[in-house]
């Protein structure tokens, strides 16, 4: 069954890149979104702290 799945009836060279690319897009956008969000959260906290402590 695994062989059958990998082989994809001879169309593995087309089917698997399609699923692979979808995975890369879906995971990639999640990771970059998350990373930007975390960076902005930290930046905002820093600004808040600075304001509390005063110049």
């Amino acid at each position: 069954m695994i062989d059958h799945l990998i082989h994809m009836g001879g169309y593995a060279a087309y089917v698997w890149p399609a699923y692979g690319l979808a995975t890369v897009c879906i995971v990639g956008l999640y990771v970059t979104t998350r990373r930007t969000l975390k960076a902005r959260e930290q930046e905002f906290e820093r600004l808040k702290r600075e304001r509390r402590e005063g110049p």
Partner: peptide, 27 residues
Amino acid sequence: CILVLRLRSEILNAKIRNARSARAAQP
């Protein structure tokens, strides 16, 4: 899911911009 995370991020960005311009204006 991604929309909600990006909205959070956009709102934070606006707050950061406001905080920065407020600080720049302060003195």
